[in-house]
Design a binder for these strands. Structure first.
Length: 346
DNA sequence: TAGTCGTGGGT
DNA sequence: TACCCAAGACT
């Protein structure tokens, strides 16, 4: 078919040289695909290199503490990826004798591996002709074939999967999937598509119909909420208080300073009394930290150590004293990492 | 299913 | 500035 001939010819001459290319080690391909979920190549590259430097095999990763894995993941975001990565490493190491499943169907059963990642691994490592339906594929296919289905609806994924099954190159499925992603990442861009240099520009339906800007169609928008977080620096000599975050919320299993959350940006006596505590806090700084789905209005305060009151602080949250020399072992959210670096580490 | 999970870059 | 988007998965 014309589509895969054109895109594979382009890929053979223009593919990006990346650290996880030129290998079919399933551990390496799996790791790279998890890192690259919702993440740009340039952001994920060093994380991939750090992980394979630290862990030679899936068994090595399985033996590590979750906290160490999260620390290596610090700064990359979507930390459930790291927790699931570690969980699946242990499952493969302990239950599958360290050997990855070799089919799309079996790969998809592993925690953290969905349709996209299973297809990517199965096609790249095991030559299974299954389409990797990701954001690039939505964009390239919706434009080339003029598909007007709303990609923000879950059911639309099947439309693109079926189209991918029809079109995919049966002899080179891994290269085909990577070619689609490379084209989407470098030529068929969301806002400023480079149609003038696109290898598919003579047969692209969206270009012919002047619909490149409209496709793909995506109607649903994420609703963003506002949260007001007050972090309290509790310091005693070379030690500071840290809390491990629990529950179903952002930054699960990462560490922060002790925190009080309020419904407005004011932290007043009422909030403190409600926490059954009264503190002497001095304001340090504030910032706005933007997540994909939340605006975090963050303020930092210092608590001046007072022997008679330190016990009261334990009511605030069950923090533990951490020596600053050991902070390198504790995974921190970006704002806390920045705060600690600014105040304590050069 | 629709909402929830980070961070950084581009426009 | 505010918004969109990035090799998505989970619940």
């Amino acid at each position: 078919m014309k589509f895969n001939y054109l895109i594979l010819s382009w890929f053979d001459k223009n593919k990006r040289e990346l650290p996880w290319r030129n290998t079919r080690n399933p551990f390496h391909i799996w790791l790279s695909e998890i890192i690259l979920q919702q993440t740009r190549v340039e952001q994920g590259k060093n994380f991939y290199l750090n992980f394979i430097t630290e862990f030679d095999t899936v068994n090595d990763l399985a033996k590590a503490d979750e906290q160490k894995v999260l620390k290596l993941w610090q700064g990359l975001g979507y930390y459930s990826r790291a927790r699931n990565l570690h969980f699946t490493a242990q499952f493969v190491s302990n239950e599958l004798n360290g050997v990855f499943p070799d089919t799309f169907k079996e790969l998809k059963k592993l925690k953290g591996i969905g349709d996209y990642t299973a297809a990517a691994i199965a096609s790249i490592v095991y030559n299974e002709p299954v389409p990797a339906v990701d954001g690039n594929m939505f964009r390239v296919f919706s434009r080339y074939f003029n598909v007007e289905d709303d990609i923000s609806l879950a059911k639309t994924k099947k439309v693109f999967w079926d189209l991918g099954i029809e079109v995919i190159d049966e002899k080179r499925p891994g290269d085909f999937n990577q070619a689609v992603m490379d084209l989407g990442a470098t030529i068929c861009l969301p806002k400023a598509a480079k149609c003038d240099i696109c290898p598919l520009n003579e047969s692209c339906e969206a270009l012919r119909l002047n619909k490149v800007q409209e496709l793909p169609i995506k109607t649903k928008k994420v609703k963003v909420s506002n949260r007001f977080l007050h972090f309290i620096l509790v310091q005693n000599g070379n030690e500071i208080g840290l809390v491990k975050r629990e529950g179903n919320d952002v930054w699960r299993n990462l560490f922060t300073l002790p925190m009080i959350e309020t419904t407005t940006d004011l932290l007043d006596n009422e909030d403190l009394i409600h926490q059954n505590i009264h503190l002497d806090l001095s304001f340090i700084s504030e910032e706005k930290h933007i997540l994909s789905h939340q605006n975090l209005f963050i303020k930092y305060y210092r608590y001046i150590p007072n022997v008679s009151k330190i016990e009261h602080l334990r009511n605030l949250s069950d923090f533990e004293w951490i020596n600053l020399n050991e902070i390198e072992n504790y995974p921190l959210p970006k704002p806390i990492e920045n705060f600690i670096n600014y105040h304590f580490l050069d």
